[in-house]
């Protein structure tokens, strides 16, 4: 269970990215975060694992106060929270396998991992995850030789290595061809259903939200403006979230 309480983030340049945001996520949910670009979705996701330090407010995850955790405890929390990025954030020059194994770093002895040593169990797990994502034959190629969709699947495999209980997905399909969006989101859905991993996923397209999310929240200029089931987003709600000029678009 994740509780976000009165979360506010003001950047040093004065921009208020989040303004008193509070909501809860139950275990096993697939929560979609919607809103325009710049509405604070990325900031919200990054505040949850403190890649960005919140200005005020609290984040409670399984009764642990993330916002107050000291560095070593924070790393312990982080390793249980996987993250998937819009730009995939793979190390382009490293092999796919190394990128996937990097997901295991939080569990490993730092001095061993500095020498690029991963236990046989880790290696086996990495190959299994890659196989599940249909990338078994790509383990030893360089990450930048893969297509965008394949790179995002490597990103998912890296998150799975953490054996996460929660996955934060920041616009996981925004950099991909629309036709690939479903294939990536299906993997997230599978994770959510089979492994009981809670998913927090920011999305652009409303029909993807309808199709995959069990619940949705919406941000507008850093404030929470909607909380409820995807099907509750009617035309009035839609205009309230996206502004009067917005039009609904569908992909495939």
């Amino acid at each position: 269970m994740l509780r976000v309480e009165h979360l506010t983030k003001i950047y040093p340049n004065g921009t208020t990215a989040l303004r008193d945001v509070s909501f809860e996520v139950n275990d096993g949910e697939f929560l979609a975060v919607i809103g325009l670009s710049g509405s604070g979705k990325s900031t919200l996701l990054r505040c949850i694992n403190r890649l960005i330090e919140p200005t005020s407010g609290r984040i409670i995850w399984n009764d642990l106060d993330v916002t107050a955790a000291p560095a070593s405890e924070l790393r312990n929390i982080r390793r249980q929270i996987g993250m998937i990025f819009q730009q995939f954030n793979l190390v382009k020059r490293s092999s796919v396998l190394t990128n996937v194994l990097a997901g295991r770093l939080g569990y490993n002895n730092p001095s061993q991992s500095l020498l690029n040593y991963f236990s046989p169990a880790d290696q086996k797990l990495a190959l299994e995850n890659l196989e599940q994502l249909g990338l078994a034959d790509k383990a030893h190629v360089r990450a930048d030789s893969l297509s965008g969709g394949q790179q995002q699947r490597v990103g998912i495999a890296r998150a799975l290595m953490q054996d996460p209980k929660l996955v934060l997905a920041d616009e996981p399909v925004a950099s991909l061809d629309p036709v690939l969006a479903h294939s990536i989101l299906k993997y997230l859905e599978q994770m959510n259903k089979e492994r009981k991993i809670t998913v927090l996923c920011s999305l652009h397209f409303l029909d993807l939200v309808h199709r995959y999310a069990t619940r949705a929240i919406a941000l507008k200029e850093g404030q929470l403006v909607f909380q409820g089931l995807p099907k509750e987003i009617d035309d009035a709600q839609f205009k309230a979230i996206y502004g009067q000029e917005a039009e609904r678009v569908t992909i495939i």
Binding site: L51, I81, M83, N89, A102, G103, L105, P110, L114, Q162
Partner: peptide, 16 residues
């Protein structure tokens, strides 16, 4: 960002 998010420490992040 991605490696930090996995819970790696500073040296591991630099290394990977």
């Amino acid at each position: 960002e991605a490696v930090t998010a996995t819970g790696a420490n500073l040296f591991q992040t630099i290394r990977y």
